[in-house]
């Protein structure tokens, strides 16, 4: 096949597209980080072998199922189990023991993608004997990613890396006891997913739906501009109980947000905050 030539878009193209999607489908990407949004769209033109920007625009406007595909491609679902083991170690050593003091634990994974992060958390809670009294709410705007998350089936080829992450995060069991392998797939223990609730939730437009002692939103805010980051962090603030914990990705921060003064970072380098006010 002919390699498709990369088509580069202008700021005006991007604005037109954002406007089309907002008016036609109610999805508002105007406060996404522009540089990475542009790359998503340029990549879409390439993988779908579209010949021009006009063709892309036309298809989005006239074909709702194609638009759903566009949303799925805009969403970057790259993820990993126990990604950043140092973070999970602090979670295990510092946060989980505090969660244990609650009669009933509620955790929110916002932007959970294909769910690896939620299964990681479930393993931590199960090892601490807390999973039975926990509910893990896992949301994302991408329904296709959520369907994968629900299945609890991940590529077997990843397990070696995940097992390393597990050990580095302070895990002491045999990681392979958490899944059964068949062909190239690993099916995770249904006991882990019993306490998970998956639902679509768009951080741009949807509201707070419960209150939690721990909210994780890792590697999602990097795709938003400062204004949208602030909105989302306020939404988390509304949804977090007093003394609750907020976890972000390793390169993310709350320092530009209006809620920052209410939070105290625990454990130096890891992106974990306690709500103190």
């Amino acid at each position: 096949m002919e390699p498709t030539k990369t088509i580069f878009l202008s700021d005006e193209d991007i604005e037109l597209l954002i406007n089309d999607m907002a008016v036609t489908y109610g999805y508002d990407f105007s406060d996404y980080s522009k540089a990475s949004f542009k790359r998503r769209i340029e990549r879409l033109l390439m993988i779908d072998h579209l010949s021009s920007f006009a063709e892309l625009r036309y298809r989005i406007l006239h074909d709702e199922s194609y638009f759903q595909h566009v949303v799925e491609e805009i969403s970057v679902t790259v993820t990993e189990m126990l990604r950043d083991p140092g973070f999970y170690r602090i979670l295990r050593d510092t946060v989980v023991p505090l969660l244990a003091t609650y009669p009933f634990i509620k955790v929110w994974h916002a932007g959970c993608a294909t769910g690896e992060e939620v299964y990681s958390m479930a393993i931590l809670l199960q090892e601490a004997g807390l999973l039975h009294k926990t509910l893990l709410y896992a949301t994302d705007m991408n329904p296709a990613a959520l369907a994968k998350a629900r299945s609890g089936i991940f590529p077997l080829s990843q397990m070696q890396q995940y097992s390393k992450n597990y050990v580095a995060s302070g895990g002491t069991r045999d990681f392979s006891s958490y899944y059964t392998a068949s062909y190239h797939l690993a099916q995770f223990d249904p006991a882990l997913s019993e306490k998970m609730i998956f639902a679509t939730h768009n951080l741009v437009t949807d509201f707070s739906f419960n209150s939690f002692q721990l909210i994780l939103c890792r590697n999602v805010l990097i795709y938003f501009n400062k204004k949208l980051q602030d909105r989302v962090l306020s939404l988390f603030d509304e949804s977090l109980e007093a003394n609750g914990f907020l976890a972000l990705g390793t390169k993310e921060s709350i320092r530009f947000s209006s809620v920052a003064p209410k939070y105290k970072q625990i454990a130096g380098k890891e992106k974990l905050w306690k709500k103190v006010k």
């Binding site: 980080s33 522009k34 540089a35 990475s36 790359r39 998503r40 990549r43 970057v76 790259v78 590697n219 990097i222 795709y223 501009n225 400062k226 390169k251």
Partner: peptide, 21 residues
Amino acid sequence: CPADYHVLIEDDGSFSLDYSE
């Protein structure tokens, strides 16, 4: 640039990180 992230720049002169392909 941190390992394992793409680094992009916004119009306002701020960096955005990106974890895509």
